[in-house]
Design a protein around this nucleic acid. Sequence first.
DNA 1: GAACGGCAGGAACACGTTTTCTGAAACGTA
DNA 2: TACGTTTCAGAAAACGTGTTCCTGCCGTTC
Lengths: 341, 341
Amino acid sequence: MEPAGPAASAGRTRPVRIVDVAALAGVAPGTASKALSGSGQLRAETRERVRRAADQLGFVPDGVGRALSSGRSFTVGLLTTDSIGRFTLPVVLGVEDALGAGDVAVLLCDTRDDPLRERHHLRSLASRRVDGIVVTGRRTDPRTPVSADVPVVYAFQPSRREEDTSVVVDERGGAVAALAHLLALGRTRVAHITGSSRHAAARSRAEAVVDAAASAGRPLVVDPLHGAWSEEWGRRAVDLLVRQVPDVDAVSCGSDQIARGVVDRLRELGRTVPDDVAVTGFDDWDVMALASRPPLTTVGLQMHEVGRTAARLLLEAVDGRPQPGTVVLPTHLVVRGSTVA
Amino acid sequence: MEPAGPAASAGRTRPVRIVDVAALAGVAPGTASKALSGSGQLRAETRERVRRAADQLGFVPDGVGRALSSGRSFTVGLLTTDSIGRFTLPVVLGVEDALGAGDVAVLLCDTRDDPLRERHHLRSLASRRVDGIVVTGRRTDPRTPVSADVPVVYAFQPSRREEDTSVVVDERGGAVAALAHLLALGRTRVAHITGSSRHAAARSRAEAVVDAAASAGRPLVVDPLHGAWSEEWGRRAVDLLVRQVPDVDAVSCGSDQIARGVVDRLRELGRTVPDDVAVTGFDDWDVMALASRPPLTTVGLQMHEVGRTAARLLLEAVDGRPQPGTVVLPTHLVVRGSTVA
DNA sequence: GAACGGCAGGAACACGTTTTCTGAAACGTA
DNA sequence: TACGTTTCAGAAAACGTGTTCCTGCCGTTC
């Protein structure tokens, strides 16, 4: 009863199946499948005929049928340890970017730091027969591995199990690079202001700065000041610092937020940045780094690349070439007005 | 040859199928399906026996098989008009939140403002037989509708076609509320500083403020100042403003970034906020609103709720109850130190 | 005692694709 | 001409679930 025309307008038109293509090309469905996938032994003429029929009908293979048949769903899960935020978002986009190119889709699973939600999502992903899972999280403290029947890659937040595949960022290297930059500018009295010591990121960056400063013969003028990841703490820390070390001439900060607070407070105290005091940030968060006066010299983390790399490693693992171990991605120093005029 | 035990350890264990459950319960696969789904006519005892068998084996129905059979994939696509950013992220999370509860998964498709990518993603979603699509975007300018064979709901950025289902935020209402708050504080010389007039958000908020001020008998002291969505513009706009209207006593801003620049610059000029000049922001972006000194009174947009609502409307439409038209969600004013001491 | 109705559960098929197996035709060689 | 080999394409099974149809049994009623 319904019009047989293949190109109905907007309304819910039932999709063309491979049998439709096969019928138009005058071959069996299996043959059409072989023709379109490039497998099997077919005459070039037949192959081309099927291909033309598929084009003409606008055939798009049904992913569900394909998944059922092939056992691969061409879908991966993206599971967050906490909630997607400023840090994990670029990772997520990097994953989506790298996978989308390979016609692999991403199932978004936001955990919100809730183990129950994590279990729920893992079951959901398992039932959907995803080909693999990317696990990410805001913190850099290693997390307990997830248990899944498919390959798993950890992005930014590594797995506690070293034989798992993890992609992390060279935080220590970045912190050392920022410090080296300050020393190269001739600064000799350097302080480090950073976030809570309960965060691995704060601890490892601080340790790296302390070690590098000491081995350069320019030990920090005070122990690292641990507080919060906020502008407010940056401002307060400056007050503490200048009281203790009035002639400080450089501050290495654990984040751009802290650095911005530091810069603001220094200016209010009448110190010129960078002439009197040079300041470095961390993260290269444009909203902070560029709005600061002067804009911040900071350490870029390339989170997008973390996501892309994790996605690539996952695809490798799905294809049977797992690569255990942790990949450490380099950071890069972005020099702006807070260190050089 | 392989161990028949159902609970193999970590290694790639083949998932239990419904036939396994049926065998253990001593019924046919079809019966097991009926027992677990609650359909068909079965004795309560049989139903319970199957249920126990499923629990014992840890059976999770294969989503792929189910999708193929039922025609529903229990998956929806989330398509961004531009790229996921600060504004759209809460929408995305709201969508994921509302759908995850109903065992519906979210396929993430980031468009990056590229029509080619959008086409690619739409094809991918179609091939995966998603049940519906949520479209979102950073800007509030209506977008050209997407063409898909499944229900579509637009979140935050509405569709240009009015009969489509869109969920937006009451920007005008929010802008009016902020202005009313300033007037209620006794301010009489109000200015409005906002972003580029090329953005619908800037235009509609500015119009609303102008209209509300005029009808309250307190017209704005100058025409709205259009610039950029940045702190830098906020600071520059203050310089322009005080030169023109030295006795301005309130500034309504189009965004928290602008408001923060305004507050900073006013303080540098020796004006006290809020005593000399009261300032309101827009968006309630914690990073800006709370780090500002004083913290910003601002308009909260509840983007999370936009996502949740869009998801709910989409599920309704998938279930055959489409609700055409635009839903406008209320904003709420968050009062902080930039207007009241 | 037979006919009928209602209920429990089994068998078969549908969904759309991929893949394997099999068969037929074409071709070459002895 | 007969036989073997190669090339191509079709038929059928497989993937796992949901649903429909159908059969058999039991109880009831005339």
